[in-house]
Simulated scan of single mutants.
Amino acid sequence: MQYRVSNRSGDKLSVLGYGCMRFTKKGSGIDQEKAEQELYEAFQNGVNYYDTAYIYPGSEVCLGKFLKKYDIRDKVYIATKLPHYLLKKSEDFEKYFAEELERLQTDHIDYYLMHMLNDANTWMRLRGMGIIDFINEKKQSGQIRNIGFSFHGGTIAFKELLDAYDWDFCQIQFNYMDEHAQAGIEGLRYAASKDIPVVIMEPLRGGRLANLPEGARKEFEKVDPSRSSVDWGLRWIWNHPEVTVVLSGMNDISQVRQNCVTAETATSCSLSQAELKAYEGALKQLRKSIKVGCTGCGYCQPCPKGVDIPTNFAIYNSSYTDGYFNAFREYVMCTTLRNVQSNASLCVKCGKCEQHCPQHLNIRQELVNVARRFENPIYKIGIPIAKKVMKY
């Protein structure tokens, strides 16, 4: 495992961090045993940065149990997030923070983020509620070691936020599809110019860059057919010296092992001209096939009408990249033939989802497109019959 030193804290952080949002589900919760196996495999391979959040269902509790079971709390760095959008009064800072400490079974947070802090106006609102006094108190007591924010928005807003406070670190979405989107390369370099460490989320765009269409895969295979799409995706990010940690939401032990191998050899400024041209070629292919830029983060959920928005978009995209028939079958099975349906046409266009979408997608219109693609006459005739046969 390679490590990069935080410019602010001096912490030696593993270049690969564990994103704890996508643990495997079991029943109504997380498969604790499976998650612990994957987390421990990462720890044994040198991963020392673990990122979770208050609103990731069961995640903080799962991570806390793991760290206590293996008695490794003091050997790793925990990052979690304050859900500022849930706060109504200044007392709520302490309330949510105390609950997070309890969930994580710890007495301090190494890297504490304002979750989805997307503009300076929101930060000013928090300042008006007394967030600065809260931060100063917690840092003085040692309960918070570093303060930062996670961001989904444009470059200008990102720079304004960086200038609004003396942050210890920040977290942005960055990958070879988003080089000039969200905070982008310009934002990344601006943070580096202020000596602010940058943690990267969505390095594979919610898995989209891990499962490339054939045309994009061939662009990479021209250069090196032995490397996986995941390897290519991660190496592009680590090629940037301004990056400190790259988070990966690993939920299979093979993913952990593969990513740790890549993290041992991927260095900054190491990609050749031939490799960089391969990324350009792959991007051209990707832009031909991807219809909706959804990362599957789930911030749009829950839908008041029960629409499973990320699943609908993932299947919609796959119908163009991997073939219509398999996607249609998946759409029927995953959204419609359920006790509680979650298909696209249930949308009533209330717009609640769009208020929370980090990618600023036109979700309502895209759901119309999904329904138009899949809910054809065959679907409308066949579903009632299928439900009757299956006794729904």
Results as ranks from 00 to 15, higher is better:
236 W>F: 10
240 H>C: 06
235 R>Y: 07
234 L>I: 00
256 V>G: 01
250 M>E: 00
240 H>M: 12
264 E>F: 04
275 E>F: 11
241 P>F: 05
246 V>L: 04
279 Y>P: 06
235 R>N: 12
267 T>Y: 11
231 D>E: 14
241 P>Q: 12
285 Q>S: 02
246 V>Y: 08
240 H>L: 05
289 S>R: 06
244 T>H: 12
235 R>K: 14
245 V>A: 04
240 H>Q: 13
280 E>V: 05
242 E>D: 11
272 S>P: 10
265 T>M: 05
249 G>M: 01
285 Q>I: 11
252 D>M: 07
274 A>N: 15
238 W>I: 01
256 V>Y: 03
256 V>M: 01
272 S>R: 14
244 T>C: 12
266 A>K: 01
240 H>W: 03
232 W>K: 02
265 T>A: 02
259 N>I: 02
229 S>I: 06
272 S>N: 12
286 L>M: 13
269 C>S: 15
288 K>P: 01
243 V>R: 05
249 G>N: 02
244 T>M: 15
261 V>M: 10
272 S>K: 15
269 C>K: 15
264 E>V: 03
242 E>W: 11
279 Y>V: 11
233 G>Q: 02
246 V>E: 07
229 S>R: 03
267 T>W: 08
274 A>Y: 15
288 K>V: 04
244 T>Q: 15
247 L>T: 01
257 R>P: 12
246 V>D: 02
249 G>R: 00
236 W>G: 07
229 S>E: 07
283 L>W: 00
275 E>M: 12
254 S>T: 15
275 E>V: 09
258 Q>M: 13
243 V>C: 06
248 S>H: 08
279 Y>I: 07
276 L>I: 14
268 S>I: 11
252 D>I: 07
249 G>Q: 01
271 L>T: 09
278 A>W: 05
276 L>H: 05
276 L>N: 03
274 A>P: 12
250 M>L: 07
240 H>Y: 10
285 Q>R: 06
263 A>I: 09
277 K>H: 15
268 S>N: 13
230 V>I: 04
271 L>H: 05
250 M>K: 03
246 V>Q: 07
253 I>N: 15
259 N>D: 10
255 Q>C: 00
255 Q>E: 15
282 A>G: 06
257 R>A: 13
264 E>R: 07
